[in-house]
């Protein structure tokens, strides 16, 4: 068993997980709940094993490094943090329907990593610029932030869906969307997830700045990746201030959660492929 097999299995298990959470949501099959959580947890452990094995394999190849160094490894880690965060939210807020909106992100990330033709799955050695102790701190903190924003976007989507049906006054407890948590609860979890993501994004930007300074003597050079991470930071800063000081909530925050995540995706993915700069690891 090698890491690529385990990570390949993960792609499919996250797909089943997505389907199962959708079944719970659509068919209101609450009894399935614990089994689906169990299944997702096992899939998560398989992926964790895959990541550890990949780490170990890189040492066997003679250039050991954490599996966080190219586009493939980053999407795999992105999926991993989304599931980890989702499972914590499920456990903390005791609701499973969120799974139908959060787990698909992890599946899509894994599917992209597995099937996209423009990214390499090979374990490659580290170029000199990446040989730093800041690598792990920077990548891990950024991706915790990204994962939180992904989940927040899923929640935002869920809010808008429920809100739409409520304004049409078609919702009652028997209907499809009746199984979703109340608008107030979704709004609260969305906000908390964004706050969590904002803290980690801040730490991610700061660790990146410290790393840049130790490698090039400049903590901030307005490289496109840096600038886009700052734009994303601004968007969430605006969102939090609008909520705290101007009382924004509900649909507006839900839209901002989705809009913010679009910026995250552009920072993470768009910059690598559409713009040039220091973080060009995605293009090769």
């Amino acid at each position: 068993m090698d890491s690529s097999q385990l990570l390949g299995i993960t792609t499919f298990t996250y797909m089943f997980s997505t389907i199962l959470y959708a079944i719970i949501f659509i068919f209101k099959a609450k009894k399935l709940g614990p089994a689906v959580t169990m299944f997702t947890l096992v899939a998560f452990l398989v992926q964790t094993a895959g990541l550890i094995l990949r780490w170990q394999e890189s040492y066997t190849l003679g250039y050991g490094h954490a599996p966080l160094t190219n586009m493939y490894e980053s999407v795999v880690f992105f999926a991993w943090t989304i599931i980890a965060l989702y499972l914590v939210i499920e456990w903390k807020f005791k609701t499973r329907v969120i799974g139908a909106f959060a787990v698909p992100f992890a599946f899509l990330a894994m599917a992209y990593g597995s099937f996209a033709t423009n990214i390499s799955q090979e374990i490659s050695p580290l170029i000199p610029a990446l040989q730093s102790n800041w690598l792990i701190a920077h990548v891990v903190t950024c991706f915790i932030g990204y994962a939180a924003f992904a989940v927040a976007a899923g929640l935002g989507f869920m809010y808008l869906l429920k809100n739409m049906s409520e304004t049409r006054q078609t919702t009652n407890n028997d209907s499809l969307l009746g199984t979703l948590p109340s608008l107030k609860v979704i709004d609260d979890i969305t906000h908390k997830t964004m706050v969590f993501g904002f803290l980690w994004l801040s730490v991610g930007i700061i660790t990146g700045a410290i790393w840049a300074n130790s490698a090039w003597g400049t903590y901030w050079s307005w490289d496109p990746k840096e600038t886009w991470s700052l734009i994303t930071w601004f968007i969430y800063a605006i969102t939090l201030h609008a909520r705290y000081t101007r009382g924004w909530d509900g649909s507006r925050i839900a839209w901002l959660a989705i809009f913010g995540f679009v910026s995250v995706i552009f920072t993470y993915y768009g910059v690598n492929f559409l713009l040039s700069g220091l973080h060009s690891y995605g293009s090769n």
Binding site: P224, W228, L230, I231, F234, A237, I238, H241, R246, S276
Partner: peptide, 24 residues
Amino acid sequence: SVKLALFTLFLLSITSIIGTVIPQ
């Protein structure tokens, strides 16, 4: 005012994009 803060942050986000699209 917080309105000014929101407005400034908004302008900073929008204008920052320019330099990521047009090489500096």
